[in-house]
């Protein structure tokens, strides 16, 4: 299916290194709409929404803020730290959203397993259901991310994948 001109133009921006080095899509050759659709489906299968995942990530980042890059216990067996750099980064979607250049690192205290995301990642996941392309610098696999955050969806028959809950 051909993408709309808006979508095609957006994909071009995402593939280019105009906003982040190497672009947002990494080595992923799938069309943008397909990437988003696949990740959104993965999230739906777990009975969750992208907003909820982004909300949890934002909570963790908020917990680390004000501690100037040192580790903070965020509860739930997670430790977080947020490192900030000067400057702002713009959202590639055509709307005026700007994020600070802040990188949050979260690690599970018992396993030492760690994940990193930026403020822009939170925005992209929450607002655009975009988890970035395979092998790009800040790609997050929806399933791995959900497991890491320890989120669980309401396990109803609807979430089995056939009849999703309406967005409201």
């Amino acid at each position: 299916m051909k993408q709309s001109p808006d979508m095609a133009r957006l994909e071009q921006v995402l593939r280019s290194g105009r906003i982040v080095r190497g672009g947002f899509l990494g080595t992923d050759r799938r069309p943008l709409a397909e990437i988003i659709e696949a990740d959104r489906a993965a999230v739906t299968r777990r009975g969750l929404t992208c907003e909820r995942i982004a909300g949890r990530m934002a909570e963790l980042t908020a917990a680390a803020m004000g501690r100037l890059g040192t580790w903070v216990d965020a509860g739930g067996g997670l430790q977080v730290r947020a490192e900030e750099h000067k400057g702002l980064i713009v959202c590639p979607w055509p709307h005026p959203a700007r994020c600070r250049k802040r990188i949050t690192t979260a690690r599970r205290s018992e396993t030492g397993q760690a994940l990193q995301w930026t403020d822009l990642s939170i925005h992209l996941i929450g607002k655009h259901a975009f988890f970035q392309g395979r092998e790009s610098a800040f790609r997050m696999e929806p399933d791995a991310l959900i497991d890491f955050l320890g989120l669980t969806g309401e396990a109803t028959a609807e979430d089995a994948g056939i009849w999703p809950t309406p967005k409201r």
Binding site: M1, E37, T44, G161, I162, W163, T165, P166, K167, R168
Partner: peptide, 13 residues
């Protein structure tokens, strides 16, 4: 349609 319950396999095209 965005607001309604479309079976997963049928979404989009």
């Amino acid at each position: 349609l965005d607001e309604s319950r479309v079976p997963v396999g049928l979404r989009g095209p």
